[in-house]
């Protein structure tokens, strides 16, 4: 652990902005984006954790981030479909 790390600051900032956004934004689209910010912050933190081994990066957190991204993409897609359904109820059954 060596002093100041800009990536750690970035991860903390992303998580903080995301949580703030989730709390203050009312629109579901903004909330979904806020959740994605939190997610990216957590993934960045996991990548940082992978660097802590002396002999090269640790593969386990990388695998976790890859799986996490897959889950985040599918959940975001589902959320976007729901938001569209909410915004345009008339074409409800068609997607």
């Amino acid at each position: 652990m060596t002093g100041f790390d800009p990536f750690a600051l970035a991860a903390a900032g992303l998580i903080a902005f995301g949580l703030y956004g989730f709390c203050v934004c009312g629109h579901p689209l903004r909330r979904l984006l806020a959740i994605n910010l939190v997610g990216n912050g957590v993934f960045l933190a996991l990548i940082l954790i992978a660097r802590r081994l002396p002999d090269g990066p640790d593969p386990v957190p990388h695998a976790m981030v890859l799986t996490g991204i897959v889950i985040a993409v599918s959940a975001t897609a589902f959320g976007l479909a729901l938001i569209r359904r909410q915004a345009r109820p008339e074409d409800g059954g068609n997607d």
Binding site: F22, P28, L32, I35, V38, A75, G79, Q86
Partner: peptide, 9 residues
């Protein structure tokens, strides 16, 4: 939608 947002967070 509300359920999804809370669950993801």
């Amino acid at each position: 939608l509300r359920y999804l947002l809370f669950a993801l967070l």
